[in-house]
Design a binder for these strands. Sequence first.
DNA 1: GCGGTAACTGGTAGCGTTTTCAAAAATGTT
DNA 2: AACATTTTTGAAAACGCTACCAGTTACCGC
Lengths: 362, 362
Amino acid sequence: MPPRKNSRSHNVTILDVAREAGVSPSTVSRVLNSQDHVRPDKRARVLTAMTRLGYVVNQQARSLAGGRSHVIGLLVHEVGVSYTGEIIRGIEEELVAAQYELMLYTTHRRKTKESTYVATLTRGMTDGLLLLLPLNPQAYLESLHQERFPYVLIDHQGTNEACPAVAATNRRGSYDATSYLIELGHRRIGFITGEMRLGCAVDRLEGYKAALADHGIAFDPALVVEGHFLQPDGYAGANALLALPDPPTAIFASNDVSAFGVMDAVRDHGLRIPEDISVIGFDDIPEAAHVHPGLTTVRQPLEQMGQLATRMLLRQIKDPEYTGERVELPTELVIRQSCQPPRAAREHTTARRRRLKEGYSS
Amino acid sequence: MPPRKNSRSHNVTILDVAREAGVSPSTVSRVLNSQDHVRPDKRARVLTAMTRLGYVVNQQARSLAGGRSHVIGLLVHEVGVSYTGEIIRGIEEELVAAQYELMLYTTHRRKTKESTYVATLTRGMTDGLLLLLPLNPQAYLESLHQERFPYVLIDHQGTNEACPAVAATNRRGSYDATSYLIELGHRRIGFITGEMRLGCAVDRLEGYKAALADHGIAFDPALVVEGHFLQPDGYAGANALLALPDPPTAIFASNDVSAFGVMDAVRDHGLRIPEDISVIGFDDIPEAAHVHPGLTTVRQPLEQMGQLATRMLLRQIKDPEYTGERVELPTELVIRQSCQPPRAAREHTTARRRRLKEGYSS
DNA sequence: GCGGTAACTGGTAGCGTTTTCAAAAATGTT
DNA sequence: AACATTTTTGAAAACGCTACCAGTTACCGC
């Protein structure tokens, strides 16, 4: 007697479909995988039989039999931030079109040996892996590579150029934002870095420096504060910058979330945005448009990045010969209301002094 | 000749482990599933053989053979908001302990017939389903129920009391928050609702009304503005409330995100929080603590809710007899800096008038 | 020591697919 | 009409594991 999974009634299998349609299981399988070499009339018979019986393919069996599992894995550090959400949206869009499912792996929870970890991911469960902004991917990247397991990095500047990856033009975006502030007339521009272990954070700092240099403005290390892409970092950083003897007239935060922290700090000092201090961010997460004043920021095409990465991964899965390359998507300066030219030197200082005093006394 | 999956070398299976350890495949399987009835020495031999060979279990085969798939599905409306993120964190914690994996399904992307959809979910891929704040779950809830497929609702007030679900004491939390404001001395309290198709939003409005009634304050429909849990809703709602001839002295937003919108609007009116207007939220997402002033809010134990739901689901999977019940976790008022007593009537109005004028003129 | 029970162990038949491989049918060619 | 191709088809063997069924061994009380 065949063991039943549960007490549940017998699942309909391709055998049932085959019987119903009067063909062999092989033919049903061929129809399922939309292969050629099936006569149109039989294909139609199979299709109707499938709908009549309410057949649903069993992925487990399919993948065990040597097919693909039709699942890809997403390795992500933190879910629940807009940045991740936007990218996942892009991934899902592409996946649903390709009839693939998404397996979520969060890195912070893992304590097992990396090697085993990758093996687990690799073995059967998924056909490929998307690595979203990994902090230290060297460990598994190597195993992945030598196992020739399909993967794509998202938003990571690998040391290895050969890695299939998609990212945004971080350096360029940062350069543009800084130039924009300079062209508005700002000369002292504060900068709050991101998590400097991440290549994108380094690139953004470099873009800032390059823009300064190209416009003949000396780089002042006092204007750079280290952060980690978090709101409190922006808050603390801005506080430090505003306490400077000669504070900046604009602050560039390495991502929108920390820019929100900056905005809070600026307001806590009794200063107004953009009248007293201009603030600019990076990412263009949805909140940037919802905040008041609207945050001027550098748009990363997050959703598009997710889509592209997924397409690259799926292509790798289909065609083992294809090894994706590194792609950079263009950033774009999104101008909202959080920046304006600084006040003329004299008027500026007096007005700010007055306002600072007011702010502190309240 | 056995067909090879790829050109990859032969995967190590339990047969290899069995040979290496000098036992039968059955014994290896028993060790894998940590069943009893295996002598310690053999178990040890198997374990060492497994590590020596670098064995990794093949989940597909395992589940196909009638075991569990060791995967649960999470049906979620929107990923990338803190609310979801916190809950997922809780889910993951529980899952990693139980050696389960997480499959992510986002609802918005689906256009297929519900019935097929559930069947797909049900068939093989996952052992159970977590439904996070589903908008209209009736469709699949029914099929799920009659298929006796394990599932747990998170943060949803089903019409059916029998549904296994975990939620927070929304009504009570809202009652507490409103009472707190009343006890501070507020009499006119604005309320911004959440998405009213969701039970939790309805409950929160009810809690607000109940607190008002219990304190002998007449309910004024003019003070209630409908929102959908989004930041712009809070902004627009607060603007509407502040434009009232007799504006509220405090605003209660149905979730933190819309409370942030309220804070923006209040500031745009040149008013200060909490001196001129008190603001209170609901959820206690991480940002609530990072914003300035810190947002007083009603804490939902989101992470804990995720954990509990997962535990309930896993228990259902293990024990088909067990049908989870509805559980409500207690909310807690988290007092930060965004509320204070309203100014005494006279001083209050003059001060606000002055400030309003200032705000508008700038 | 002996039957009886309980703890172990191995053999093997599936689970539902895909994938050869070869046979059968259809098509084209002279 | 006979032959050479090319499409279509079906049978059957995996894929790696679990679950059932016997068969072994170990333990216990007499």
